[in-house]
Design a protein around this nucleic acid. Sequence first.
DNA 1: GGGTATCTACCTACTAGTTGGTAGATATGA
DNA 2: TCATATCTACCAACTAGTAGGTAGATACCC
Lengths: 191, 191
Amino acid sequence: MTMKANLLTHAEALARSRGIDAFSYADLAAATGIRKASVHYHFATKADLTLALIEDYAARIADRLNQIEAQSAAASGALRDFLQLYHDALGTGDSLCLCVAFSAATDSLPEASVTRVEAFRKDVTAWLNAQFNRARQDGSVRALSDPAQEAAALFALVEGAQLVARAARNPDRFTDAVAHFSDRLIMGAIQ
Amino acid sequence: MTMKANLLTHAEALARSRGIDAFSYADLAAATGIRKASVHYHFATKADLTLALIEDYAARIADRLNQIEAQSAAASGALRDFLQLYHDALGTGDSLCLCVAFSAATDSLPEASVTRVEAFRKDVTAWLNAQFNRARQDGSVRALSDPAQEAAALFALVEGAQLVARAARNPDRFTDAVAHFSDRLIMGAIQ
DNA sequence: GGGTATCTACCTACTAGTTGGTAGATATGA
DNA sequence: TCATATCTACCAACTAGTAGGTAGATACCC
């Protein structure tokens, strides 16, 4: 792995567990074993670093969502995988998905990153909207209302569930919070 | 208003709009017109200040929830008022409820404050649980499942909806995200 | 091939500014 | 007189970021 990728990996872990405000170039230098000035060589300013973080993250999640959609036989399967993705992002209960971490720190983020996070949020909500539209066809989600409304609600639910689970340092809280929604998913033999 | 209360008011506003990490004693001094050292006279350390903030806030919300419960004729009315309370906390879209702000910054909070926030979260969830139990009696919430599950889900939903609305700087996003839940509330002539 | 130039990736050593926090003087009112 | 509340003037530690230098790889030209 290149040092740049290495720095991004550590920065993402720190941002997700502590928040963007709460880690410094010094932390990053300590984590990777190079000097602070060398971190600046790869990412001139912290604004550059945060933008790189969100772009990298957004690309990875977009790939994963496409993959989930392609692999699922019904909307319910895709939505179950979506929940699992956000559950797994919690790790042992000490880290958030980067989107939640960035949303929580909007004020200390450079404008370019805020815009990028907004676009990411819009993309994920659009993906959810597509799944709920699919569900309207395949009938794999119980008590379905307006897809756009469902998408907005589910996105807020998983973000809130992450926040609660991380604050309690217990990923089970995520499962509890989304249980009511999970119960609405009708799973066939193979999803 | 005493200077101590004045400081708490400004600190709460700053914590809710920017986050706890993102305001300093210097900001507080500038906001109140006294010197930084004088702020330390009232709150010796930032740990003291954050604890005072959450205690003050928890007491106010507990009062408000008791009031809401007493005034409501049915569970649906109490839950609608609960949603309104969290909606109003957003202001024009630039501030979170203190619980969300504190949950997002768990790592940079002193242990005593983390514990206090956890207790607050537990209290609010218990209140929601009580409302859903009430709903089981009065039938004012459609498609009701397990009250504890509903409480966990609703709490996560409002926290996430606040996060999304603040990030987008638009309180309407909160309304969108909770619309699906709102639709489940059966409102009588007088609530 | 040998010399020159440029690039990558790092370094030491620094700056200017901010952070939470402290010591000790001073004003004010009961 | 004495507690309360404020002040000025500091401190150590940390922040992002900069200046200037170096070892080694790569590229180009004669």
